[in-house]
Simulated assay, not measured.
Amino acid sequence: MSGEIDKKTRSTVLVAGGTGFVGRRLAAALDEAGHDVRVMTRKPDGYNGPGTAVYGDVGEPESLKEAMAGADAAYYLVHSLESENFEEIDAKAAAAFGDRAAQERVGQIIYLGGLGDDDDDLSAHLRSRRQVEKLLAQSGAPVTVLRAGIIVGHGGISWEITRQLVEHLPAMVTPKWVNTKTQPIAVDDVVRYLVGVLGNAEARGRVFEIGGPDVLKYRDMLTRVAEAQGQHLPIVPVPLLTPGLSSRWLSLVTDVDTETGRNLVDSMANEVIVRDDSIREVVPFELTGYDDAVRHALEERRAVR
């Protein structure tokens, strides 16, 4: 990832959610690019990754002061999908983070949100992502938003659902959302975008949509993961499978908890594809195709087992 940003533009950057699926990769890329990286975590003593661990909890607004003091920019990669009342939790956390960023005069907040048309009947998950965008900005701190759909990479929740369904089932009787269109993106490409908008004057205060080069139905994603592993996966959609039943079905055949599964399944009824590709002019690079992203994710999983 080095070379995405000139090291002469060294910044002090806070990464909230820096121990997560995207965050740990982002922290490594920022560190490699020469930035002073602070990884915000509730357990700093147990952190052994790139950058410096600092204590902070978005649920404890006072803890944000020290973590954010002197930061030029702050990434917000936090969500509470595993909680039943995730909308309320995420709203309070985003408001507190935005308020503190404004008080500390942080020059840029960068938030990874979710794709989906605003005029669509968005799921609670995607509505919450929109609300977080607004709350981060309400105190006046400049916010850059990157909206993504399914992120393909080892350890990502949506990717793990896809991989485990293919791994555990010889055939699938599935809900009708398998015919919904989506635009998956490789996790490495997400990180390139996140690094690329940092300190970028063209990105301040803007909302961007990011996706890979392939627009696919969920069923296509599943069958292509199977093909990458030399499998054949028959899929039979069944319209009567409700979101509630779908989430319980996921919990039986994957290790994703029922609450997280329900929140993600609700979103699968929404078409999540890029309508505005203006990010390509601001942060240009060659995107990774879905099949290559799948192979990389599978290789990474094998390497860490």
Rank of each mutant, 00 (worst) to 15 (best):
K176T: 13
T174N: 12
E202F: 03
H168M: 09
V166A: 02
G212F: 05
D188G: 13
F208A: 08
A203Q: 02
V215F: 02
T174C: 12
R206N: 12
R206F: 06
A201C: 02
R192Y: 11
T174R: 11
P213H: 12
N179L: 11
E167S: 14
R163C: 10
G211L: 03
W159F: 15
P213M: 09
G212W: 07
A201W: 04
H168Y: 13
N179P: 02
E160M: 09
G199Y: 07
D188A: 14
P184I: 13
T182W: 14
D189A: 04
T162W: 13
G211S: 10
P184Y: 11
V178D: 07
I210C: 08
V173E: 09
D188T: 13
Q183R: 02
L165Y: 03
F208I: 04
V173W: 12
Q183N: 10
V190L: 10
M172K: 02
R206Q: 15
V191N: 10
V187S: 12
V178Y: 11
V197W: 01
T174D: 08
H168R: 15
E209S: 07
A186P: 02
T180L: 12
N200R: 12
R206K: 15
V178P: 06
E167G: 01
A203C: 06
R163D: 11
G212R: 01
V178I: 13
R163W: 06
T182A: 10
E202D: 14
T162V: 15
G199M: 01
V215D: 04
K181N: 14
D214I: 11
A203G: 00
S158F: 03
F208H: 04
T174S: 14
P213S: 09
P175V: 06
E160F: 05
V190R: 02
G205A: 04
V190K: 07
W159T: 10
R163H: 14
P170K: 09
Q164T: 07
V166D: 07
V190D: 01
V187W: 06
V187C: 09
I161M: 15
P170G: 08
K181R: 15
V166C: 08
V197L: 00
N200H: 12
P175L: 08
I210A: 10
E160D: 13
V173N: 11
T180G: 10
F208S: 04
D214C: 06
V178N: 02
G199H: 05
V173I: 14
L194F: 00
T174V: 10
A171W: 14
E202M: 08
T162I: 15
D189E: 05
Q183E: 04
K176F: 14
V207H: 00
Y193D: 08
N200G: 01
P170Q: 12
E209M: 01
